[in-house]
Design a binder for these strands. Structure first.
Lengths: 255, 255
DNA sequence: ACGGCAATTCCATTGAGTGGAAGAAAGAAC
DNA sequence: GTTCTTTCTTCCACTCAATGGAATTGCCGT
């Protein structure tokens, strides 16, 4: 299209449509005003207004009573159709439930999403130690149980990028440098398991193991996160490994 | 835009972008070829090709090794940010878990989505009676427990539309006509509960109850679906009602 | 009634999007 | 190995749909 393109923004219409969706990406972006969407997407207000209206007509975004905008059910439904997430969740669910019901601790299922661990599923008991992970949220690879597993089995350049990004040292035990992480990741690959204490959340203990698909490739990770001193059970690592293998087998993994 | 718009398709670019997303909407639409997307969206092949490429660049759609297209993680993440679905699921989850763990039957959470019941959450035991509902799927309002509850508390015009659409009589007990449904919905409103046997699935028993938010409006429904003769427990209806009230209270409902 | 801010509408301008057609690639059939 | 068939990809002249600054409307709070 064209028009009085005074500012030279080379984005296509589709890219602008997506830029508006991305405005809802970050945390604390549940309800946005039109102006806020315009600001975040870097689009002029009138353009934003027109495109947001189209989003609303389609149903991907809905308008609240107060005139704000939020992600709508149409996008929720569409997202649910993502086959990778759906398959993994469906297959893993009974195993995660077992783990959860037998321990009443936090049970996580995550996949690697770029340089982060994306949480696909989470079971949390009322008494379990509070963790920040939420379904759909992303946490760094270097500081979480599932993240370390996913990092250990990721292509080499992912590791390079992670260390070069100078990751944050959340707590004393958080490993952030190449010399710290490299041998540890080798150990994870050798043992198909990682155990960590106080790396992301204070007083938390975590055991995580990789999940493989029919090709043998690591596609996800399971973990238990428990209170470090009180409830951490020496049986947790083995239980997580068994659950991970069960899910892998259900995905077609052999030997 | 413009160009050699020979066929007069009045859709805007944004609408075309959304039409491509809608191609993945129906059942059995996990992996689509470019041609199939073009056919379903009613767009010329070259236009479809260009727009799908933009979708892939953004990450909402991914290309498989075999050259097919499917919904990507980006859309899954975005969908997870839909506040209504997330809030309901988060709040309801512990109550659904209780119901499930104490009964080991199918436990459902659904909202009304137009003329259908959209399943937001589902717990299914290994031994539970198989049901077709799946998270993210839609079933008709007139034939399911949650659907009947949602229909009973929906605006009057929803009921009109449902009966005018001449809904399918799945089994002998399925109610499809105005004279059948009207008194039943009144009964549901009076008792805040519906019990149904063999209406959607053979040999299945279902009890469902409404969930209200802080305004008192019915926003969702919970149900248990069990095997009709074997496992249906006379305690189920009451248990479902209690769970529904618990969720309602957690949503801010009073009295 | 009066500022102040955000949302909405208007409209002349023009290059981004269009889609038929041609070409390339990947299978299927012979 | 060759030809046919199907599907995907690229090309490009045409043109009107998208554009965004500006003006208007709506909505608060004071």
């Amino acid at each position: 299209m064209a028009g009085n393109r005074s500012s030279d923004d080379p984005r296509s219409v589709a890219e602008r449509v997506f830029a508006i969706a991305d405005a809802f990406g970050g945390p604390g972006s549940d309800d946005l005003t039109l102006g806020e969407i315009a600001r975040r997407s870097g689009l002029p207000l009138s353009t934003t207004h027109r495109l947001v209206t189209e989003w609303v007509e389609w149903g991907g975004i809905v308008r609240t009573d107060e005139g704000r905008y939020r992600v709508g059910m149409r996008l929720w439904k569409l997202g649910m159709r993502a086959p990778t997430a759906r398959r993994l969740r469906t297959v893993a669910r009974p195993y995660l439930e077992d783990l959860y019901e037998l321990t009443r601790e936090n049970v996580h299922l995550a996949v690697r999403d770029g340089l982060g661990a994306l949480y696909l599923e989470r079971f949390s008991g009322r008494g379990a130690v509070p963790v920040i992970s939420e379904v759909g949220s992303r946490l760094p690879l270097h500081a979480t149980g599932v993240g370390l597993v996913l990092l250990a089995f990721a292509p080499a350049d992912v590791f390079e990028q992670v260390v070069q990004a100078r990751p944050r040292r959340y707590l004393q035990n958080t490993m952030t440098t190449d010399p710290e992480l490299r041998p540890r990741l080798a150990d994870i690959r050798a043992r198909d398991l990682v155990v960590s204490v106080n790396e992301m959340t204070e007083d938390s203990f975590s055991a995580a193991a990789p999940i493989r698909d029919h090709t043998g490739e690591v596609v996800a990770a399971v973990s238990i996160v428990a209170h470090a001193d009180r409830s951490a059970d020496p049986q947790f690592p083995l239980a997580v490994s068994v659950a991970a293998r069960g899910i892998s087998r259900a995905l077609g993994w052999r030997a």
